[in-house]
Design a binder for these strands. Structure first.
Lengths: 213, 213
DNA sequence: GCGCTCACATACTACTTGGTAGGTTTTTTG
DNA sequence: CAAAAAACCTACCAAGTAGTATGTGAGCGC
C-alpha cells in the first residue's frame, strides 16, 4: 500500500479528480493552506470529506498534488519556447512571457505554488512531508534553472548583459510571481488583454527603467 | 474602552513590547499566520498567553500591529531619498535600493507585510477586521504611490522610459518583495554584502537584461 | 441476480486553539 | 508604607478540524 494514491504525476486521470485539485486550489488561494479546512474544499465541490479522503490520504498530500499540477503547467508553458535559433535574449523574453501568461491563466494553481515556496521555510511536520516538500523544491529549482541556463547563453552570445545572472533571474521571476498577488482578471477580460499585460511586464524586465543614452 | 490598546502607531513604547512584535513576526514568518498559535508566540517569548492578551485583544490585532511596524520601517527607509535635485531615475534607484535593504534587514517584519498583502484576498471575518485590513492596504497603496510618483517625474524629465509606469513599478516592487521569500542572511554576512546584493537588484531593475545596442 | 469493487456519504473521535475569568506578583503612586 | 494599578500567569471552555471507521448504493462481471 503506502503511497500509491497521489504518487504518479498529476491526478488528471479518468476519474476526473481535476475537480478536487481545482476546488482545493481555489480554496487555498482564497484562504491560504492552513485556514482552509477539508470541509471547505468538499463544500466547494458539493460533496463531503469522504470523497476527498477517498483520493488523498491527507491534507498535505492534496496540497502537494495541487502544487505539482501548478509546476507542471509552468514547465508546459515555458519549455516549448526555450530552444531555437534566435539569440538567447529573444528566447528568454518568450519564456518570461509564457510564464506570465501561465500565471494569469492558472491563477489559483500558481497561488498555491507560491505558497509552497513560502512553506519551504515553515517547519514541515513529518519526515515524509519533509521529503515531499524537498522534492517540490527541487522541481522549483529546476524550473528556475531553465531560465538561468538561457540567461547564461545570452551572456555568452552577447545578447544579455547583467552583473549577476542568478540575481537577475531571481529578480525577473520574482516580478512575475508577484502577479499571483496583485493580478486579478477583470470581468470581461480577453486573451489579448493578458498578452498586452504580459508584454509590458517582459518589456520592463528586459529593458529596465533607465532611459537609453 | 474599545480600541485603546494597539491603536496609536507601533508598540515600541516604554513597556518594551517590541519583544512581542518581533517574536510574533518571527513566528509568522516561519510558520505563517494561521499556523502560528498564540502559545507559539508566547513560548518564543518565554512567557504565556496572558502576557500577549494583556497587550493585544486578539490574534489579528497582533498581526496588524506587526504589519504596521513593517510598513513604518518601509516608509522610514524610502522617504529620505525620494526628494532632491537629481534626475528622477537616480532618486527612484535610491528608493529601490533602500527598500531592498529594508527588506533584508527587517526580514521577519517584511515577511508579515507580504502575508498581509496576500491576506487581503482572504475573507476577513469580522467587519472590524475588514476595516483594519482595508486601512493597511491603503497604507500599502500609499507606499506604492511614492514610487509611482517619482517614476512619473522620471518620464517627464526624460530619465525614465517605460511603456506603463504602473506596471513597471509593480514589476520592480514585486522583484524586491520577492526577497522575503528567497533571501536569507548568511552566517557572517555584513552590511556590505547586503549593499552589494541591493545594488545588483537595482541594476537589474533599472538596466534590464537586454544588452545595449 | 449474485457477489464484488469502486465511489462516495455519515457519524464520530481526539486534539488543537482562540479567547476568557480570575488569581498573583511586581511596580508605581500618594 | 499602604493602596492602587499594571503586568503578568493559571486554569478553563467552546468551537473547529484532521482523520477514521463504518455504512451504502451503483455499476459490472459472469
Amino acid at each position: 500500500m503506502s503511497s500509491e494514491k497521489s504518487q504518479l504525476s498529476p491526478r488528471i486521470d479518468k476519474t476526473g479528480n481535476i475537480d478536487i485539485l481545482t476546488a482545493a486550489a481555489e480554496c487555498f488561494m482564497e484562504q491560504g493552506y492552513h485556514a482552509t479546512s477539508i470541509d471547505d474544499v468538499a463544500r466547494r465541490l458539493g460533496a463531503t470529506k469522504g470523497r476527498i479522503y477517498h483520493y488523498y490520504r491527507s491534507k498535505t498530500e492534496l496540497f502537494f498534488d495541487v502544487h505539482r499540477e501548478g509546476m507542471r503547467r509552468n514547465f508546459e508553458a515555458v519549455t516549448p519556447v526555450m530552444k531555437g535559433p534566435e539569440p538567447a535574449a529573444k528566447r528568454l523574453s518568450a519564456m518570461f512571457r509564457q510564464h506570465a501568461l501561465s500565471m494569469m491563466e492558472n491563477l489559483a494553481l500558481e497561488a498555491v505554488v507560491v505558497q509552497g515556496v513560502e512553506m519551504h521555510r515553515f517547519g514541515a511536520t513529518t519526515p515524509e512531508q519533509r521529503r515531499t516538500l524537498a522534492e517540490l523544491m527541487t522541481v522549483r529549482n529546476d524550473f528556475e534553472s531553465l531560465f538561468k541556463r538561457v540567461a547564461y547563453e545570452g551572456v555568452e552570445d552577447g545578447s544579455i548583459r547583467t552583473s549577476d545572472v542568478s540575481v537577475a533571474v531571481k529578480v525577473a521571476l520574482g516580478a512575475i510571481n508577484w502577479l499571483s498577488i496583485w493580478y486579478r482578471p477583470r470581468p470581461a477580460e480577453t486573451r489579448d488583454d493578458r498578452e498586452i499585460l504580459a508584454d509590458k511586464i517582459v518589456d520592463s524586465i528586459m529593458q529596465g527603467l533607465n532611459a537609453p543614452g
